[in-house]
Design a protein around this nucleic acid. Structure first.
Lengths: 237, 237
DNA sequence: CGGCCAGGGCTTGTATACAAGCACCTGTCG
DNA sequence: CGACAGGTGCTTGTATACAAGCCCTGGCCG
């Protein structure tokens, strides 16, 4: 954001890596994260690892219990719901702020993005990348690209729940169609239709969370203040 | 947020203190923050101070330039605008989610809050506290209290700009009346009126920012990536 | 007199050492 | 056999030492 671009410190590298591993469920919710282990396996000292964990803890992706351990936080349905509300509020408000003349370059990116979404054999992670870029592109159209970064930072729990949903039934095609629908409404200047399509789209995954929770309850938190059981997980290959 | 409540580590204490000093402009934008100095004056080592600065940097309240120094970030008009958009989107969306039966306890808190806002001789910081509690209370009414914490974390730049505005003309009475107006509309069940009043209220301070910027340009950032000039500031009494 | 260069003092980044405390495991005793 | 107590190994929190680099300043040289 306002950070200087020279972020090639090892802390930043570790932070980005760990964050990605948590969001992609490569580090599953509940996994134990030992500062010493991580430092050893990554060939650095505890300091940058520890500082990364503190940042992740502030984002709610990691929980640190002094003298007990650090753990990948379980998906908290309450936080998923909060992020859903936040995201919906922001994205719908952005649609209301669309200017009369849409940025042609952004529109082209969005069109390319949509085209790629409908390709066959699209991997889940690839789809997620495109999905994220699509929604960010819509925010750019209304000049609120920066506000999106705040939303993106807050929706870690939501994204993990979404991934769980996709890994369960793996049908990104439906979402791709919904994206197309939103995009067409935006280009057509029909804000009301765009809002309706966006709301429908954003709530599609959200409605599935309870089903996923019944299927994999161990990934979800029951009491967020409870101390997890230590359970080692192989990290960093 | 989802952190365990046992937060009596010195890091947390320092973090809260520094954050408050930045938000209240007690640490003015552009001030130099030396890890060594802070640690010495607070009687601890660099470690907890440094970790606090890293957290504040992630919030955008502090900028850390490796091998150069750490500085209280100048108020970034772009970030102020982003926070304004985010806040407006969320608070208006919350009004749409108000349940038919409003929580009586929260309503009582809000009434007490409004009554206190209209007392004579109210200090600026006291008003800010009440203002923050009032808006949080409205979010609680719609069951989105937790989403408010995310907004609160993102609106550091906005709050500093608001404080600048209040210290300039010091007229919280107008805002207190607007709060009352919003509250009455909410209690009366007129969501449309509540939305209008809320929008008017939220944009009141925002429109003043340019005036403040002309008055105190040194507190605002021109190029957010520029390295500030070192300028020592007495800290911690 | 002006420009260049080296050195010292500061900065943050990283590594390491020590402190405090929880949890489990084991040996002992009832 | 069961329960309890103590040790041991782990955890994170804090303190300190070292590394790398920027900036300014003072001295030297053209």
């Amino acid at each position: 954001m306002a950070q200087p671009k020279r972020q090639r410190t090892s802390r930043h590298e570790i932070y980005v890596t760990l964050r990605q591993m948590v969001l992609t469920l490569q580090l599953p919710p509940g996994a134990a994260l030992s500062e010493n282990e991580l430092a050893a396996s990554m060939g650095v000292s505890r300091t940058p690892v520890r500082e990364s964990l503190i940042l992740l803890a502030q984002e709610g992706l990691v929980q640190v219990f002094p003298q007990i351990g650090s753990f990948v936080s379980r998906v908290d349905p309450a936080q998923v719901s909060d992020a859903q509300f936040l995201r919906e509020a922001v994205e719908l408000a952005a649609l209301d702020d669309l200017p009369p003349d849409l940025d042609a370059a952004v529109l082209k990116d969005l069109r390319d993005n949509l085209e790629r979404q409908q390709r066959e054999g699209l991997g889940i992670e690839e789809f997620f990348e495109l999905d994220e870029a699509f929604h960010q592109g819509l925010m750019r159209l209304s000049g609120h690209a920066n506000a999106w970064t705040t939303v993106a930072a807050a929706k870690g729990h939501l994204d993990r729940a979404r991934r769980l949903g996709l890994y369960e039934n793996a049908s990104p095609a439906v979402f791709a169609d919904q994206h197309r629908e939103i995009f067409d409404a935006v280009v057509g200047g029909d804000v009301s239709l765009a809002r309706t399509a966006m709301r429908t789209h954003l709530r599609a995954v959200f409605s599935d969370i309870e089903r996923i929770r019944a299927h994999s309850p161990e990934l979800f938190a029951t009491d967020p203040s409870a101390v997890p059981v230590r359970r080692n997980v192989v990290v960093w290959e």
